[in-house]
Computed example of a mutant assay.
Amino acid sequence: MKRILAVALLASAPLSGVQAHGNHGTQVGIGAEIRHELADARKEVRIDLAKARRELETDNLRLDKGLRFGQDGTRKQARNTALPQAEITPRGDFLIDGKPQAIDGGQRRQLLAYRGQVIGIAKSGIDIGQRSAEAALDAVGNGSLFGLVLGAMTGSLERRIERLVRAEVEPGVRGICRQLPALMQAQQRLASSLAQFRPYATLEAGDVDDCEKQVRRDFASL
C-alpha cells in the first residue's frame, strides 16, 4: 500500500509545473514513470507472495505462536508465549524446543493433515492479500493522469481503493472464518491422540462466531 500511495504522490507532486507550462512532454514522462512504478509494484507483490507460499511448504509450522481469531486472540497469543517452541516439520515430525517427540504412524498422519489445514488457511490469506493488492494497483493504474492527481488530492482515490480492497478481502476472510470448525476438530483429535500437543490446541467453539463478528466490525468502519 505504501508503494501505491507513493505512485499517487508521484503523480501529484509536479502538477503545478505541468499546468503552468502546458508541457505535454512532461506529462508523458510522468505517466511513463507511473506505469513503470505500477509494473514494479505488481512484480514485487507477486515475488514476495510466491516466496511466502514456498516458505509455508518448506519451513516448519510453528504452533506456539498460536492462531488468533476474534477478540480473544490477543489474550491467547499472550498465554501462548509461555509455551515452549513447538513445530510440525514437512515430514510430520513433532518438535518441542527442537527435540523430536515420540509419535506413531497414525499420529504422524494426523500431524501432517493438521499442518496441511493450517497451511491451506495461510495460503488463502496470501491469495486474499494478492487479490487486494492488485485491485488497489488497478485502481491507481486505471484512468488518466489528471484523474489520478485529482483523486490523490481529494481523497477519492483512497476511497476507491478501500472499496475495491473490501470487495476482494471481505468474502475471503469470511471463508477463512468458516474453515475454523474443521480446524478445531483436527486440533481436538490431535490433543486426544498426542498429549504433548494439548497445550497448543487453543481454538474454542466461540472463536468461529468471534471471527465473523470481528470481520463485520472491521468492514463496517470502511
Results as ranks from 00 to 15, higher is better:
residue 18 V to D: 12
residue 102 A to C: 00
residue 191 A to K: 01
residue 89 T to F: 09
residue 14 P to E: 08
residue 157 L to H: 06
residue 196 Q to N: 04
residue 63 L to A: 07
residue 85 Q to V: 15
residue 75 R to S: 10
residue 201 A to H: 04
residue 198 R to L: 02
residue 141 G to P: 02
residue 92 G to A: 11
residue 188 Q to G: 04
residue 45 V to A: 09
residue 36 H to A: 15
residue 120 G to V: 05
residue 179 Q to M: 09
residue 62 R to F: 06
residue 138 D to P: 05
residue 149 V to K: 10
residue 95 L to N: 10
residue 48 D to K: 15
residue 182 A to M: 11
residue 210 D to W: 00
residue 178 R to L: 14
residue 205 A to D: 12
residue 32 A to L: 15
residue 111 L to D: 07
residue 90 P to F: 11
residue 23 N to Y: 10
residue 168 E to N: 05
residue 208 V to N: 08
residue 66 G to F: 01
residue 48 D to T: 12
residue 34 I to V: 15
residue 136 A to T: 06
residue 213 K to E: 14
residue 15 L to W: 14
residue 16 S to N: 15
residue 6 A to R: 11
residue 45 V to G: 07
residue 152 A to Y: 00
residue 44 E to Y: 08
residue 63 L to N: 06
residue 47 I to E: 15
residue 172 G to W: 01
residue 77 Q to P: 00
residue 190 L to P: 03
residue 117 Q to G: 06
residue 78 A to S: 12
residue 12 S to H: 02
residue 127 D to A: 14
residue 12 S to K: 10
residue 48 D to L: 10
residue 134 E to I: 02
residue 100 P to K: 11
residue 110 Q to N: 02
residue 12 S to Y: 01
residue 75 R to E: 13
residue 162 E to M: 09
residue 97 D to H: 12
residue 27 Q to C: 09
residue 217 R to C: 05
residue 67 L to S: 02
residue 18 V to A: 15
residue 54 R to G: 10
residue 40 D to T: 12
residue 59 D to R: 12
residue 33 E to M: 14
residue 190 L to H: 02
residue 177 C to H: 07
residue 19 Q to D: 10
residue 189 R to N: 09
residue 173 V to F: 05
residue 2 K to S: 10
residue 77 Q to G: 13
residue 149 V to C: 07
residue 28 V to K: 15
residue 28 V to D: 14
residue 36 H to M: 13
residue 106 G to M: 02
residue 96 I to Q: 11
